[in-house]
Nucleic acid binder design. Structure first.
Length: 472
RNA sequence: GGCGACGUACCCAAGUGGUUAAGGGAGAGGUCUGCAAAACCUUUAUUCGGCGGUUCGAAUCCGCCCGUCGCCUCCA
């Protein structure tokens, strides 16, 4: 049984999908006005681990992630770049897909774009209007918060007791109450717009998620996620709009990922600690380590990104690869043993511990805490020759089963799949020949030469393993 | 001002009432190895920001203090 910390009600709940065996998941996606940063990616990796864990548990998952491709920032960005809005946002949505792919994030079942769902949003606003939740003012349509008694149930906010920011005070739109929010904005000169019953305009931000989630997942679905800053106002407003329109509950479980901070501070361009995936990979070209680092902290705790932590993640991940390589490359040669290491029993114990850690509100570090002692046991049995070929296969499958959720081994498999240049193959062969005739000066020379070219050799009992050197 | 999260070793981090405080990284020593690397073994917190309190018993519950961070109307 998966337990999840529901932001709605702030409690740990036993999760069961509304439709047995089928998890319907809406994950707030990027506003495609810029390249995403590693904080955004932390949230996307969390969502990926969530969907993978459900799938590992035998559930079907339908995940939908929106792409916000029309809002103040995209419009401004397109104007500054002198590009049509669609061309401008295409550039960043492409970059987004490239980034999540580089971190081995499984694709969602759908990535609806706001600009392609304006009619659905207009329909939803009409439904809200029919139920008396909206009013029109100068071609814009607002949600009247006072008509929705449940307002604040997600974030716990009490707007009467809250400080009014300058943003509210400076609001240029005509609202009855400063707390009301726009569901439809009247067109301004030179801005992209769509026809509507209220004249030319464009959707408010929150309405897209209500309209698109309900279109693809139904008007009542299982899980909605985002980062903590979405709790208010975005998700609070989504609930008001969605439940206001349908008159029944919208989402069962709300999950929110904490922020990533850098060196203990908020990531900000002004501090020079603002990183995109490209920035990180330029300094350490090791996406597997980045993914590992992002999932090595529970999603509800702040993740402190440091280069030292990334270096540690790189070593940890390499430890997984090394063990997997030994089992994959040399496992079959182990043969059968009189009283072999109880690989089946230990693998089952490990997978049970691994999975129950994830059941506990996706406690990834605890799951990793089960993995490493298992690897140590396997390596030890391998070294002591108590592991047999069958056990090696079982252990390898157990590691791969865990990795269905962790998702790091594919990086390594991909690296291994790249054919080694013939000359390097030849040098490895030459070195092994030199070692055979005990010409260690020559074999060490070749090893040093290859090391200088980024190829590290390890002489294992079964043969020589090569790998790319860890990036500095 | 309102709401919320957090502070565990050199670094990252699990653990939220009860045996010796997971795990990873880094450091030190060792086994193995022609030498390395890898792997393995040993080792590094009498103590969980501070001070009080509750309790037979607290890193875990309560209070205060110190510190860090987030949200408070289109930020992941």
């Amino acid at each position: 049984m998966v337990k999840l910390q529901n932001t709605l009600g702030r409690r740990l709940v036993d999760f069961a999908p509304l439709e047995p065996g089928h998890v319907r998941l809406y994950t707030c996606g990027p506003t495609v006005y810029n390249v995403v940063h590693i904080g955004n990616l932390r949230t996307f990796v969390f969502e990926d681990v969530l969907r993978r864990h459900f799938r590992a548990g035998g559930h079907r998952v339908t995940q939908v992630m929106n792409l916000t491709d029309v809002d103040d920032k995209t419009i401004r960005g397109a104007q500054e770049a002198g590009l049509p809005l669609a061309d401008f946002t295409a550039k960043y949505s492409d970059a987004f897909f490239r980034d999540i792919r580089r971190l081995n994030v499984q694709p969602a079942e759908g990535y609806p774009r706001a600009t392609e769902h304006v009619p659905e949003m207009i329909d939803l606003i009409r439904r809200l209007d029919a139920r008396g939740h909206t009013y029109e003012s100068d071609g814009s349509v607002y949600f009247r918060i006072s008509t929705f008694p449940g307002y604040g149930k997600l974030s716990g906010i009490d707007l009467d007791r809250t400080r009014r920011s300058e943003r509210v005070a400076d609001d240029e739109y005509e609202k009855e109450d400063v707390r009301d929010f726009a569901v439809w904005k009247a067109a301004k000169p030179g801005e992209p717009s769509w026809p509507s019953p209220w004249g030319e305009g464009r959707p408010g931000w929150h309405i897209e998620c209500s309209a698109m989630s309900m279109k693809y997942l139904g008007e009542h679905f299982d899980i909605h996620t985002g980062a903590v800053d979405n709790v208010f106002p975005h998700h609070e407003n989504e609930i008001a709009q969605s439940e206001g329109a349908t008159g029944h509950p919208f989402v069962e479980v709300w999950l929110h990922a904490e922020h990533l901070i850098v060196d203990g501070e908020k990531m900000a361009k002004s501090k020079g600690n603002f990183y995109t995936l490209d920035d990180v990979l330029a300094r350490r070209d090791d996406p597997a380590a980045v993914r590992y680092l992002l999932l090595s902290v529970p999603y509800r705790k702040k993740l402190n990104f440091t280069w030292e932590a990334l270096a540690g993640a790189a070593v940890a991940v390499d430890h997984i690869f090394t063990t997997w390589d030994r089992l994959t490359d040399f496992g079959a040669a182990l043969g059968s043993k009189p009283s072999p290491f109880p690989a089946e029993e230990r693998s089952e114990e490990f997978l049970r511990a691994f999975s129950s850690a994830l059941d506990d509100d996706l406690n990834t570090p605890q799951a990793l805490g089960a993995l490493f002692p298992f690897l140590t046991e396997i390596n030890k049995a391998f070294d002591e020759r108590t592991l047999d070929a069958k056990g090696a296969e079982i252990a390898r499958l157990a590691i791969e089963t865990a990795d269905k959720v962790l998702g790091v081994i594919p990086f390594h498999v991909e690296m291994r799949a790249e054919p080694l240049p013939a000359e390097i193959e030849a040098q490895i062969a030459a070195r092994n020949a030199a070692r055979k005739r005990r010409d260690f000066a020559e074999s060490d020379r070749i090893r040093d030469e290859l090391a200088a070219r980024g190829i590290v050799l390890e002489d294992l009992p079964g043969g020589t393993r090569w790998k790319k050197a860890a990036p500095v």
